[in-house]
Structure formats: structure tokens, C-alpha cells
Amino acid sequence: MLTLQYVPMDEIIQLDSDRKVTKLLKIIKQDKIVMLEGRLSNKEEGMLIERTMEEIDKKFKGIEIASLEPNVRKDIGSALRDGIFKLFFGDRRGITIMGPANIIKEIKRDPNKLQLYTSNRRGRK
């Protein structure tokens, strides 16, 4: 059985970066695939990779992650408005999929779609 857990931005926006990453990794290490509303900041993504590397052992091989966000050209006014909104309410555009590398073999990204290739261990395809 494959479990997908939706994590709305409201659930993590109050947390500092360290706690956000801890929370997401905890879900992934329960062999669940996380569907995060929006995306982490660039620094948080870097932190997620660092923390993932720290936790790799014989059982946990790491993660697969991919984000999709709408590619909308903006004028300066709306870009500024979005920047301020992001600062207070997080980046809610698009979606981020992340999961354990022993379950997700590969995520292929097209401009508007993500394809998840799962491992066929334990009967999965």
C-alpha cells in the first residue's frame, strides 16, 4: 500500500526552517509520500538535503523530491506583492512531492506534470 499525505502550508508556516524540515522528514521516514502545498524556500531545500544525508543509514537511503509551480510572467507590482505575501504566508504556488528513495525510484518533471516511478519492491510498481 502506498500512502500519500497532504501537508498544507498552514500546517508548517508557523514552524522555523529546522522544524519544518524535521516534520517533513519524519513523515517521509514513515514510508509516506508527502504532497506539500507550495514549496520550501531554497535554503530550506538545501537544509532538507543536508538533514537527509545526516540520517542515511542501512534502512533509509534518502529522498526523491520535485516541485511544480506555475510559470506566470509578472509585472513589478505583482511580483512585489507576491514577495510580501510569500514572506508572511509561505510560497503556496504549485506543489512539492517528496518521498523515501526506497519507494520512489525517480520523479520526472515536465513543465506541467510530475511522473512518479515507484520501486517494485514489496510488490509495488
Binding site: I49, T52, M53, I56, K61, G62, I63, E64, I65, A101
Partner: peptide, 8 residues
Amino acid sequence: PGIATKID
């Protein structure tokens, strides 16, 4: 070193 999200 090359950056990756998984090491097996």
C-alpha cells in the same frame, strides 16, 4: 562533491 538527495 556532487550533490544528491539519495545515497544507496
